[in-house]
Computed example of a mutant assay.
Amino acid sequence: MIRSLLVLTGTLAGTLAALAMTPAPQATAVAVYDVRGGDSFTTAPASGRCTVGFSVQGGYVTTGKCGSPGATVIGYNGVAQGTMQPSTLPGGAGGWVKTNTSWRPRGLVNRHDGTFVAVRGSQAAPVGSAACMAGATSGWKCGTIQARNVTVNFPEGTLTGLIRASVCAAPGDLGAPLVANGQAQGVLVGSGGGGCPSYFYPVDKLLSVYGLTLVTE
């Protein structure tokens, strides 16, 4: 009987020792990517490339021309980014994307040279001010703000209150942010013949229409 107890005690001790040496399960890290103005995105069903405008709480503003409401949005790295929200503006000019938990909106604009511009606010720059666009295709391009409150007839409809800038755009740049001295100005909704000049929907109007809050750094 005593021998049996000793055997059982030894077995139990060995089991406890083995359990003590077993490492505790570790939580799996979930990758989170930054949302940055100027980065590319696409929508599914398949569409052409477009550009992130400015980060807002819960997502980012861009142009509604890049996808139908409810379309799945894919980020620059091929990771599902969120869902295109309904556009209430003429011709789907301005719109926004509600991002998922894999993405973190940042108040940054990609200069496409390894550096970023911090977005500090959305104060409207006067006509004649220097301004730069960050397009997924064109990269970082600078020029001047030529006019405000411009009306343009696009195939999708007539848009009013636009910003006209001397920078030139290319396919894939739609939705691109226009920045002046760290202040968000607007998102690209179209351009003239040959890509120049470019027209931007004012960011403050987008924020107001959709009840969004700009993310700043």
Rank of each mutant, 00 (worst) to 15 (best):
M133E: 02
K98G: 12
R104E: 13
W103N: 08
S102G: 12
G107T: 04
P126A: 06
V127D: 04
W103Q: 05
R111N: 08
T99V: 15
A118K: 07
W140D: 04
G121L: 11
S129T: 15
T115S: 14
V109A: 05
H112P: 00
G121M: 14
Q123T: 11
A118H: 00
T101Q: 14
N110I: 02
L108S: 01
C132M: 07
H112A: 01
V119E: 01
W103D: 07
V109S: 03
A136N: 06
V119L: 11
C132L: 07
R111A: 09
L108E: 10
W103H: 13
P126Y: 06
C132N: 04
A125M: 09
G114V: 12
G128D: 12
R106C: 13
R104M: 15
N100S: 07
V117I: 15
R111I: 10
S129H: 08
F116P: 00
A130G: 11
P105L: 08
R120I: 05
A131T: 06
V117C: 08
N100F: 02
R106I: 01
R104L: 15
A134E: 04
H112K: 03
R111S: 01
W140R: 04
A131F: 03
G128Q: 15
P105F: 04
R106H: 08
T99G: 07
M133I: 01
N100G: 09
A130C: 01
G121S: 13
A124H: 07
H112V: 04
R111G: 01
